[in-house]
């Protein structure tokens, strides 16, 4: 277990290195610079700015310095937000995104697993078709259509919740639903097909022969194998929820990291873009690792690290 984690962490180093390198050079190769949008800057000020951020040095020297700082965990100062470092910006806005992501994932799991299990118990009946059609709708109606529609209906017409901001709990409801729905839909479909694989198996009959109550057969004997496809989906889903939050945070004006990233890209923030990309990269690696551990825990035939 421990050796598995250590090995995985070591394996992530090249990935992170590639991310850092690619983003670093992509940002610098692109036309325009971080200060090009600020029109009324005198050449002297511009030179000072460049000198302050080390942009006057050769690119390779900048790159070496950047890598050195990264190893120390320092993602550098932000170009667009003077006096603030990328680390600080991530530290203040990531908790918001994390909360949104956790709420959305919890919702997706609760909704998706329930719908998937119900559908699998009576395949090809109304109890199967109804949730599965809804799930298809959840996959096909994009977040950025659902979000504004929900905002229009519950925020503006019914006035139940605010459509923007992130102050009290009701503010979190619509963004979490919008972000979670498509994943609930995927999870429902995966859970249904997983359960349909397990339920006709001999060992379910054995459980019945032992007199295990039906609810316990579903939740203890079938679900552990039936949710394996869902668990392997959670890795890519994390990536999806991260990028999905770009849109949701834009729609509902949530002060999270996703919005920062889009803004940073538009503003050619030379440190913010690679910094956030690296952060997201590490996050995805950590989640994929957690998913692998969870998978091995659920499926005793899988041994970690093989």
């Amino acid at each position: 277990m421990l050796s598995f984690i250590v090995r995985r962490v070591i394996e992530t180093i090249p990935t992170l290195f590639i991310i850092a390198t690619l983003t670093f050079f992509m940002v610098r190769l692109a036309p325009g610079g971080p200060f090009s949008s600020e029109k009324n800057v005198s050449p002297q000020v511009l030179r000072n700015l460049n000198e302050h951020y080390g942009l006057d040095k050769p690119v390779l020297a900048q790159y070496a310095g950047y890598l050195k700082n990264i190893v120390k965990g320092d993602l550098g100062p932000s170009f667009k937000y003077p006096n603030r470092t990328v680390n600080e910006l991530i530290a203040t806005s990531f908790p918001v995104s994390l909360e949104l992501g956790v709420l959305a994932t919890a919702l997706a799991l609760a909704l998706g697993l329930t719908a998937g299990i119900i559908a699998s118990l009576r395949p090809n009946s109304l109890a199967d078709y109804a949730p599965m059609t809804l799930a298809m709708a959840g996959i096909c109606i994009p977040t950025f259509v659902v979000g504004p529609l929900l905002a229009l209906l519950f925020g503006l017409n019914l006035g139940w919740v605010n459509v923007s901001g992130w102050h009290s709990f009701p503010d979190r409801v619509l963004p979490a639903i919008t972000l979670g729905l498509p994943y609930a839909a995927y999870i429902a479909r995966l859970c249904r097909s997983g359960m349909l694989e397990i339920l006709p198996q001999d060992f379910i009959r054995t459980a019945r022969a032992k007199g295990v109550p039906e609810w316990k057969i579903i939740l203890k004997h079938a679900l552990k194998g039936g949710i394996l496809p869902v668990v392997s989906f959670l890795g890519p889903a994390t990536a999806g929820i991260i990028t999905g939050s770009f849109v949701v945070e834009t729609i509902f004006q949530v002060p999270g990291l996703g919005r920062h990233f889009v803004n940073a890209a538009f503003n050619r923030d030379y440190t913010m873009v690679p910094g956030i990309a690296l952060f997201y990269g590490s996050l995805m690696i950590v989640f994929n690792m957690l998913v692998d551990i969870a998978y091995a825990w659920l499926n005793p035939r899988i041994r970690l690290g093989e």
């Binding site: 001999d202 060992f203 054995t206 459980a207 022969a209 004997h221 552990k224 659920l298 005793p300 035939r301």
Partner: peptide, 12 residues
């Protein structure tokens, strides 16, 4: 049951 390979739950 007949087949002990499939009659036991592999996940428990």
């Amino acid at each position: 049951f007949q087949d002990p390979m499939t009659s036991l739950n592999p996940y428990l």
